[in-house]
Simulated assay, not measured.
Amino acid sequence: MTSETLYNLILTTAQENTAILMIGSEGSRNDPTVTPDQYQDFDITYFVSDDVFPTFDVFDRSRFGDMMIQQILPEKNRWCWLMQFMDGNRLDLKIQPVSVVPDYLAEDTLNTILLDKTGHYTNLTATSDRTHWVQRPTQSEFDDSITEFFWVSTYVLKGILRGELLYANTFFESIVREELYRLLTWRIGRDTDFSLSVGKAHKRLPAYFEGLESLYDLSDLTGTGQALSTALKMANDLLPSLSHDLQLTYDVATVDRTTDYILRQL
C-alpha cells in the first residue's frame, strides 16, 4: 500500500476502536526542517484508556501490511512494535495509557496529537525540532569530551602500532570519531546561537564541514592512521576558538603533548 493509504489506515483503526482515545505522532514527519521522502517512518502512539492498557500486548497489527520483520520492545508503561513491511512502509507503533499524554507532549516538541476523542488537546502549538537543538556544553561536559577524545586516541595508536586493525578501528569509530563530532556539533551550535539540530547520527554535519568522509577510510592500518591524524588536526584547529567563544577552558599543554606524541609515532 502507499504511505498515504497506511496513514489513513492508522487513523481509521483508531477511529473504529473505542479503547483508543488519541493518536500521537512523533518524529521526522512532524519536523518542519526535514524534506519529506519515501523513506520516512510513521512514528505513532495509540493512547488507550488506562484500564484496558494491559490487554494491548495482543493488539492485531497484521492490518497494517505484509510484515517483513519486526522488533518488539515492551517497556514500562507502553508497548512498542517496530515494523517493516514488504511494501516498503515502516511503522513504529506504541501503545500508552492516556494518563501519560501530558508528559508525552512535554518531552519532545516534535510530538503532537493527530486525533483526540476526548477533546482535551485540540489547540496544540505547531511542532518544531527545538528539543533536538544542540545544547551549549558545560565546563564539565567540555572537559570530559576533550579528555575522552585524546585519551582514547592513544588506544587507537596502540592498535595501529600492534597491527591490530579491529582493535584500533573499534576505538576510533565508537569513541574518537564520536567525540570529535561532539566538538564539531558545539561549533555549529556556537555559530547558530544553539538554535538548530544536526540530525540523527550527525547526518547534517557534512553541510558544515568538508572532508569528514576521510574519517571512514579504515580498511587498513594506513587508512586508520590517516583518519586519526585528520581527527587530531581537526580537534586542534577547533579547540582554541571554540573554547574562547564559549568561555570555557581546556588543558592546552596536555592536548599539545598528546597530539605530538601520537603524530610522532604514526
Score class of each variant (00 low, 15 high):
residue 2 T to S: 11
residue 8 N to Y: 13
residue 9 L to I: 01
residue 12 T to E: 15
residue 18 T to I: 10
residue 19 A to D: 15
residue 20 I to G: 00
residue 21 L to K: 12
residue 26 E to R: 14
residue 33 T to L: 02
residue 47 F to E: 14
residue 48 V to G: 07
residue 59 F to N: 03
residue 72 I to V: 13
residue 72 I to W: 04
residue 73 L to G: 02
residue 77 N to H: 12
residue 77 N to Q: 14
residue 83 M to G: 03
residue 88 G to R: 04
residue 88 G to A: 05
residue 89 N to I: 03
residue 99 S to M: 09
residue 102 P to W: 05
residue 103 D to S: 13
residue 103 D to F: 11
residue 106 A to K: 15
residue 107 E to V: 07
residue 108 D to T: 07
residue 117 K to I: 15
residue 119 G to Y: 01
residue 121 Y to M: 08
residue 126 A to P: 08
residue 127 T to Q: 04
residue 129 D to S: 07
residue 130 R to L: 13
residue 132 H to Q: 14
residue 145 S to H: 04
residue 147 T to D: 09
residue 149 F to T: 05
residue 157 L to G: 00
residue 157 L to E: 06
residue 160 I to D: 00
residue 163 G to D: 01
residue 165 L to P: 11
residue 167 Y to P: 02
residue 169 N to V: 06
residue 176 V to A: 07
residue 176 V to K: 06
residue 178 E to R: 08
residue 179 E to W: 02
residue 181 Y to N: 14
residue 182 R to L: 06
residue 182 R to D: 12
residue 191 D to L: 12
residue 192 T to K: 09
residue 193 D to W: 09
residue 200 K to M: 02
residue 200 K to G: 00
residue 205 L to G: 01
residue 206 P to E: 13
residue 209 F to C: 00
residue 211 G to R: 02
residue 212 L to C: 09
residue 212 L to S: 06
residue 229 S to Y: 09
residue 232 L to T: 11
residue 233 K to A: 12
residue 235 A to M: 05
residue 238 L to T: 03
residue 244 H to C: 01
residue 246 L to Q: 03
residue 247 Q to A: 15
residue 252 V to W: 03
residue 253 A to L: 10
residue 256 D to R: 01
residue 258 T to P: 06
residue 263 L to Q: 15
residue 264 R to M: 10
residue 265 Q to N: 13
residue 266 L to P: 11
